[in-house]
């Protein structure tokens, strides 16, 4: 699904050139749930930005869903973001001026989709996260956990092949964080590929596989079956 080979990302200023990622290789298979961990400044966010086609790498190659996407133009990248990728943000990033229904509608609007089709998908997505009753509410009227569930519904509505989550529970208290995490696990069980960036080792442990990033390079820690079983027992 996602394959980065010898990827590099350099930031140039007038004085120095710093590498956020250097010789970065990772392979995420379809249906995997991968947690990317690492200390602050290690290059996690840069990795996620490139994975989500928000930024372009300065070297190496990036294959998404069998297609080389490292050299695409802005329009093509927008199209792929819209069609194949769902984002879940730490700060939820709902549009405050739009109600729940219209927020979930946003990605669908950028596809040529009939009104009936959009309505069906929005309904399903909100059903999935258990917020069907709150269609007309505005983000500010919801709790943090509910907001994040709306954001997940928005990510799901477009039936993306890859879900990218950036500290999805970072702004939530532990109880809400657990609920959101369970939702992600359910989505994963239903067949989605998920890449989640987090600095929380407990959360990371609940993923199938952990990837540790230090100084812009990958240290693959392999699968974490024990912890995963524990989670299953909790659920």
């Amino acid at each position: 699904m996602l394959k980065m080979t010898h990827l590099a990302k350099a930031f140039r200023t007038e004085v120095v050139e710093t590498y956020a990622l250097r010789d970065f290789s990772i392979h995420v298979r379809t249906g995997e749930f991968v947690a990317v961990t690492g200390p602050s400044g290690s290059g996690k966010t840069t990795f996620l930005n490139i994975a989500g086609l928000l930024e372009t790498p300065t070297g190496g190659s990036y294959e998404l869903d069998g297609e080389d996407v490292s050299r695409l133009g802005d329009d093509a990248r927008s199209r792929i973001r819209n069609g194949k990728i769902g984002f879940i943000f730490q700060a939820f990033n709902l549009i405050p001026d739009l109600n729940i229904y219209d927020n979930v509608d946003v990605p669908l609007r950028y596809r040529k989709m009939s009104g009936a089709e959009r309505k069906k998908r929005i309904g399903e997505a909100l059903e999935r996260v258990g917020l069907s009753a709150r269609l007309r509410h505005y983000p500010a009227e919801l709790s943090g956990g509910q907001q994040q569930r709306v954001a997940i519904a928005r990510a799901l509505a477009g039936s993306p092949k890859l879900l990218l989550a950036d500290e999805p529970t970072g702004n939530l208290d532990s109880q809400m964080a657990r609920a959101v995490m369970q939702l992600l696990e359910e989505i994963h069980r239903d067949g989605a590929t998920i890449v989640m960036v987090t600095h929380d080792p407990e959360l990371a442990a609940r993923a199938q596989r952990n990837v540790h990033v230090i100084d812009g390079q990958v240290v693959d820690l392999g699968e974490a079956p024990t912890l995963r079983m524990n989670v299953a027992a909790n659920a």
């Binding site: 927008s78 199209r79 973001r81 819209n82």
Partner: peptide
């Protein structure tokens, strides 16, 4: 700004 950044992330091309 925020709304625009999100829309762009979600896949809105510049011209949209």
């Amino acid at each position: 700004n925020g709304e625009i950044a999100v829309r762009r992330a979600i896949g809105a091309p510049r011209r949209e």
